[in-house]
């Protein structure tokens, strides 16, 4: 009887150690709160999603985000260090690009003990050049994740 107790006591000791995890060391959820934009194109009076063949995007004076990619949607990582961000969007290498300026409010969010803090955004206004862009329409002004589509950009003549 006494020996059984001793074994159980020893066993429990090991069990307890295995049951815990150091939450400050593991970052298992990342926050992606990039502005998600879809392209819409008017063809013969019907507005629908459209894929452009060679999309190039970059933030002004920063590295290229996309280079000649064929896509119907893009992501803009808004700057967490400023209240506005400017991006360059070229839907075809042969065509002139447009500049978009986003003004927004930043909100810090706690992600997890291991990952620390991130930022979400609430878009206030968008300013854009109209070389090729016809108009834009906000679907969702609060950028808390990248799964939602936040903005549609309409093109009417390529």
């Amino acid at each position: 009887m006494k020996n059984i107790y001793k074994l159980l006591i020893a066993g429990a000791f090991l069990l307890g150690m295995a049951a815990c995890e150091n939450e400050t060391k593991v970052c298992d959820q990342t926050l992606r709160a990039d502005l998600h934009i879809g392209f819409r194109h008017d063809s013969a009076g019907i507005v629908r999603d459209t894929i452009f063949r060679a999309v190039t995007t970059l933030a002004l004076n920063r590295d290229t985000l996309l280079k000649n990619n064929s896509t119907n949607n893009i992501y803009f990582p808004l700057s967490p260090v400023a209240d506005s961000s400017q991006f360059m969007l070229k839907i075809d290498s042969l065509l002139q690009g447009d500049t978009l300026t986003f003004r927004y409010k930043r909100t810090p969010v706690f992600i997890s003990a291991g990952c620390g803090f991130g930022t979400t955004y609430t878009i206030d206004t968008v300013l854009f050049t109209t070389h090729l862009i016809d108009s834009v329409k906000f679907i969702n002004k609060s950028v808390t994740n990248s799964n939602d589509t936040h903005l549609y950009i309409f093109y009417f003549n390529e």
């Binding site: 990582p77 803090f117 930022t119």
Partner: peptide
């Protein structure tokens, strides 16, 4: 204090709760 690093934009955001 907390800091947030932005690899694309450079720089970091500091704050506190």
């Amino acid at each position: 204090s907390y800091t947030q690093h932005s690899s694309y934009w450079g720089g970091q955001v500091a704050g506190s709760y």
